[in-house]
């Protein structure tokens, strides 16, 4: 027997993924793997399927009527599409940050405390400690520590996105999915989120969809280029930026189309 050495541990693997929205074939035979505790960026023109692919991983596509997914998956050691898949467990292990900040219309504290108290029954001072801890990890604590009981909707857009990040971390996931998390933010807020992503990749596997090539370059170590529902190319970010294998990728990265 030949032992196949696998130096890289993958937190996300997907083989031959096809996604249909009704009759629309949105993902075509995608093979994808994201290494653990690294940032994998997914880029490509609008409608290329990168967000759709992300939403396959925590089965948020279930919420779209007519969506059908086929393929083999392994996400955080689980098969999301197994017959007896525990979706709540899957989504506890796989957090998601959305394009637009979507804090709940309740206090800053409750935004973070809700999920851990429901999932793990955490209460009282433990809960308070956890809220503080996650807010610190999201670099938001100093800005909100005196207003924990104020509504989250009073925060700025950038603060709201970091709150959503903290809210996600409070569930203690392994994988963080980010769907263009900075597209609604100004450059300074974007910078803060990017710093956080780099910091978080020490402990988490991060998959980020972005339209911003510079951002992909700055934050990621792996790069996946999607086009018309296909995964055209995937590899080390530097390598792909330096010398992409496919001509389409080179054209896209050089800004010839977008």
């Amino acid at each position: 027997m030949v032992a196949v050495a696998s130096p890289v541990k993958h937190a996300v693997r997907a083989e031959d993924v096809n996604l249909y929205y009704g009759t629309k074939h949105a993902l075509k035979g995608v093979n994808f793997a994201a290494p653990s505790r690294q940032v994998t960026a997914m880029i490509g023109p609008s409608g290329c399927g990168k967000s759709s692919f992300l939403r396959c991983l925590n089965r948020m596509n279930d919420r779209i009527p007519g969506a059908k997914v086929t393929g083999k998956f392994e996400v955080a050691g689980m098969d999301p599409y197994a017959k007896n898949a525990d979706l709540m467990r899957l989504r506890r292990a796989v957090g998601m940050l959305f394009q637009k900040p979507n804090p709940f219309p309740s206090s800053v504290f409750e935004n973070i405390a809700l999920a851990p108290s429901l999932h793990y029954g955490i209460k009282g001072s433990t809960l308070e400690g956890m809220v503080e801890e996650t807010l610190k990890r999201a670099a938001l604590w100093d800005e909100v520590k005196d207003h924990l009981r104020r509504s989250a909707l009073e925060l700025s857009g950038g603060q709201q996105q970091r709150l959503c990040l903290a809210r996600m971390l409070a569930v203690e996931p392994e994988i963080l999915l980010m769907d263009e998390p900075c597209s609604a933010l100004d450059p300074i807020s974007t910078g803060k989120i990017e710093d956080l992503i780099s910091e978080l990749s020490k402990d988490y596997t991060v998959l980020i969809v972005t339209h911003n090539l510079q951002q992909a370059h700055r934050v990621s170590s792996q790069l996946a280029f999607f086009m018309l529902g296909e995964l055209v190319e995937m590899g080390d970010t530097e390598a792909v930026f330096e010398s992409a294998q496919s001509e389409v990728t080179r054209d896209y990265l050089s800004g010839r189309f977008g």
Binding site: M88, L90, R167
Partner: peptide, 8 residues
């Protein structure tokens, strides 16, 4: 979506 994605 936010609530569902948190595993609620």
């Amino acid at each position: 979506d936010g609530a569902i994605a948190l595993g609620l």
